[in-house]
């Protein structure tokens, strides 16, 4: 289980990511900021899962299920969007 300082540090990082992400969006970089926003979201979500939900200390089975879910979401997005991208 992470100690309190780690959790507080994660919190600060999350807030920082939120700030940067919002700032980037305001820069109006065309479609570039969309990619950056999503990357920041993945990073934040990863931090919450890894530290706050302490998957870091979770069993292999839990990691497998968490990772597996991400893969299935990617299948849905990847194969689904592929239709519109190639129409």
């Amino acid at each position: 289980m992470p100690n309190r300082m780690t959790l507080v540090a994660v919190w600060l990082v999350l807030l920082a990511l939120l700030g940067i992400s919002t700032w980037v969006a305001l820069l109006r970089l065309g479609s570039w900021h969309a990619a950056l926003n999503l990357i920041f979201a993945v990073a934040s979500a990863g931090a919450v899962v890894w530290f706050d939900m302490h998957l870091r200390k979770g069993s292999g089975t839990l990691k497998l299920f968490a990772g597996g879910t991400v893969i299935f979401l990617f299948i849905m997005f990847g194969f689904g969007l592929a239709d519109w991208l190639t129409r």
Binding site: F79, A82, D83, W84, L85, T86, R87
Partner: peptide, 10 residues
């Protein structure tokens, strides 16, 4: 009305 490429992959 799905794309032909997607059809072939599926």
């Amino acid at each position: 009305g799905e794309s032909v490429y997607a059809g072939l992959v599926f």
